Amino acid sequence: MTDEPLERWAARRQGRLRQPGELKTVTLGTGPQRAAHVDPDVPRMILEWDGFAWRPLMTVENYAAARHVLNPQPVSMTPDQAERAGPVTGRNPLAPGTGRHRKPRS
């Protein structure tokens, strides 16, 4: 069996590691941690990974505010930028088709 070069192993390991600046949320309610949607009105703490440990970043009032912090909405384009981007193209997944899973028409 041949050994993997150290540089390749280090690069592979780095790809698996959490990146500094990654955010996560923790429920500040009583009792054990449960799914986020179970207690939507309970305050949350936003934690940031600094490369070694999770550090408290801020607290927010509820689940919706935590989602807004973790997944900010993209900045909308100006009409000029939208015009330069061109039309949206691609296959419509809801368009009628002839796939095997489709019910045959009578």
Rank of each mutant, 00 (worst) to 15 (best):
L47Q: 15
E61H: 14
H68P: 05
Y63G: 10
I46E: 04
V60R: 03
R91E: 09
R91M: 13
Q73G: 14
I46S: 03
P87A: 04
M1A: 12
T78W: 03
T78A: 02
N92T: 01
D39P: 14
P32S: 10
A66W: 01
T59K: 08
P87K: 01
R13S: 10
A82V: 03
A11N: 04
M77H: 05
I46Q: 05
S106C: 09
V88K: 12
T27S: 15
V26I: 15
A53G: 07
G31T: 06
P5K: 06
A35L: 15
A66P: 01
G90W: 01
S106V: 13
T98V: 10
P96N: 02
R102H: 07
P5I: 03
A66L: 00
P74W: 07
V69S: 05
L17W: 13
L17G: 08
T30F: 12
M77T: 08
P56A: 04
P56G: 01
Q14E: 09
D50C: 01
A53I: 13
D80S: 11
A66C: 02
A82F: 05
T2Y: 10
S76H: 08
R34F: 13
T2K: 10
G31A: 05
T78Y: 01
L23P: 06
G51L: 04
P40W: 02
T2A: 12
T59E: 14
P56T: 02
G86T: 06
P43Y: 03
G21R: 06
M45W: 09
R84S: 10
A66M: 02
G99Y: 10
G97L: 00
N71C: 10
P72M: 01
S76G: 13
A10D: 11
E61T: 13
P20R: 07
A64G: 07
Q73W: 14
R105K: 11
K103Q: 11
A35F: 13
S106H: 13
R8G: 11
I46R: 03
G21K: 01
M77C: 11
L28K: 03
G97K: 01
E4W: 14
S76C: 12
V88T: 11
A65Y: 07
S106W: 13
T59W: 03
V60H: 00
V26H: 14
V75F: 08
E22K: 04
D41G: 08
A82G: 06
G90Y: 01
T2Q: 09
L47V: 03
D80W: 03
E4P: 10
A65K: 01
P56M: 05
W49Y: 12
G51K: 09
T27L: 14
R18K: 11
A36W: 02
G97I: 03
T89S: 06
M77F: 08
N71L: 13
V60T: 02
A11C: 00
L28W: 00
P104W: 02
M58V: 07
G86K: 03
P96H: 02
H101D: 12
A36I: 03
V88Y: 13
P56V: 04
K103I: 14
Q73S: 15
P104G: 05
A35G: 15
R44Y: 09
A35Y: 09
P104N: 04
A65C: 07
P40S: 07
R12A: 15
Q14K: 11
Y63R: 15
